[in-house]
Simulated assay, not measured.
Amino acid sequence: MSARRGWFAAAQAALLALALAACAGTADPGAAPTAPVSSSPTSSPSAPAPEPTPEPTAERTTFRIATLKGPTTMGLVELMDEAAQGTARHDYQVTVYGTPDEVLPKILQGDVDVALVPANLASVLYAKTGGDGGAKVKVAAINTLGVLQVLEAGDTVHAVADLRGHTILSTGKGASPQYVLEHVLTEAGLDPTKDVTIEYLSEATEVAARLAATPGAVAVLPQPYATVVTKQAEGVRVAIDLTDAWADVTPSRLVTGVVVVRTPFLAEHRAAFDEFLADYRASTQFTNEHPDEAGALIAAAGIVPAAAVATAAIPASHVTYIDGADLRTDLDGYLAVLFAANPASVGGALPGDDFYYTPGG
């Protein structure tokens, strides 16, 4: 017990610095945004030389991009680094914010052109800006699949059915984490109100502390909190990846973060935006294929406090790039689950056809 408490005292500062905005509901709207970051590139002697940036086919364009601390931004870091060094093909001006609440008004007021936001917030933005036929935003890509994991301070839980009779610690009551967990439990044949006890705490740090200090405890934590806990707390392990558990019971994939663009900006700079999407796709590929280098950039950008934690968290953060028909299939399925749980979580109604953008289409 004391050893478990000891690790948390040492790691608490790092945990407090981690903001998993991509799967959070709301947070302190007064938190100060992080200024655009500049980081030095990292390199490995064995890493292949980067491919040259293609010659632009669109006029060089300034993109005001808002993104969030946490996995939502992990796939963007190579592009951020190129922009900071002046080697990107467009002028990508990236600002990293602490919570979705800080980004929402920026989009509504036209202060940003592109934003990386939680998937359900994109649907809320669509509804707030006019809905079907007149919305001021479109979603162009999925950038992060699920980031939630079930952790156990023990070795009894190996499948969703094994959660029967357990108390599950979690955050996100009234937000996506609650709806995702309840959906997975229900589809696996468990009643969330009878077969398990879900205890919601206000902060992920509280969940981490309880988990680390209580033998046999079970908790749901997002990345990179989950990686920090498993690295620092003896005996705590990942029991279930909820992204995999979702896929087992749902036709669509679990979605966390997406890329949205304001339609007035898109109308004026469509060719440049398609080039941004190509650059962003390459950046997410870099993150997944070169996790050590990407981890250093993630830490330098202030997204995760330590490069080693960032590198370890990348695989479980499901950083990706999905557009076109697959984007619609996965996002429609995810939003439908949230809508069934709480229509307000997606803006009161499911978005229409004009919500989806297809590059080059």
Results as ranks from 00 to 15, higher is better:
7 W>S: 15
8 F>S: 05
9 A>T: 11
13 A>Y: 02
14 A>T: 12
15 L>A: 15
18 L>M: 15
21 A>H: 03
23 C>R: 02
29 P>Y: 03
30 G>C: 09
33 P>S: 11
33 P>I: 11
36 P>V: 11
39 S>L: 13
45 P>S: 14
46 S>G: 08
47 A>G: 04
51 E>N: 14
53 T>M: 06
56 P>F: 03
61 T>Q: 13
64 R>D: 13
68 L>A: 04
68 L>G: 00
72 T>V: 15
73 T>D: 13
76 L>P: 06
79 L>M: 12
86 G>L: 10
90 H>P: 02
92 Y>E: 04
94 V>K: 06
94 V>Y: 05
95 T>S: 15
96 V>F: 01
96 V>W: 00
98 G>Q: 15
98 G>T: 14
100 P>A: 10
100 P>K: 02
101 D>L: 03
102 E>P: 00
104 L>P: 01
104 L>S: 09
105 P>T: 07
107 I>W: 01
107 I>T: 14
109 Q>Y: 05
119 A>P: 04
123 S>W: 03
126 Y>G: 04
129 T>H: 05
131 G>Q: 13
133 G>P: 06
138 K>C: 11
143 N>R: 12
144 T>D: 13
146 G>Y: 07
150 V>Y: 01
154 G>F: 02
155 D>G: 08
157 V>K: 01
161 A>I: 05
162 D>H: 00
172 G>Q: 03
173 K>C: 08
174 G>I: 08
175 A>V: 01
176 S>K: 07
177 P>E: 04
182 E>T: 14
185 L>G: 09
187 E>F: 00
190 L>W: 09
192 P>H: 04
194 K>G: 11
195 D>Y: 11
196 V>Q: 08
199 E>F: 05
202 S>N: 13
208 A>H: 10
209 A>L: 13
215 P>C: 12
218 V>R: 04
221 L>P: 03
226 A>C: 09
229 V>R: 02
234 E>D: 15
235 G>K: 07
235 G>M: 10
236 V>H: 00
236 V>C: 01
238 V>G: 04
248 D>H: 11
250 T>I: 00
255 V>C: 08
256 T>V: 10
258 V>R: 01
259 V>W: 05
261 V>E: 06
262 R>L: 06
263 T>W: 09
264 P>G: 12
264 P>A: 12
266 L>S: 01
267 A>Y: 08
267 A>K: 15
268 E>N: 10
268 E>S: 14
271 A>F: 08
273 F>D: 07
277 L>A: 09
277 L>G: 07
283 S>K: 04
285 Q>N: 12
287 T>M: 10
287 T>P: 00
290 H>R: 14
291 P>E: 05
294 A>I: 00
298 I>N: 09
314 I>F: 02
314 I>H: 00
315 P>W: 06
315 P>V: 08
315 P>E: 09
316 A>G: 12
322 I>T: 15
329 T>A: 13
332 D>P: 02
333 G>A: 07
334 Y>D: 00
334 Y>K: 02
339 F>T: 04
343 P>G: 11
346 V>C: 00
346 V>K: 00
350 L>F: 07
352 G>A: 13
353 D>R: 13
359 P>L: 08
359 P>A: 14
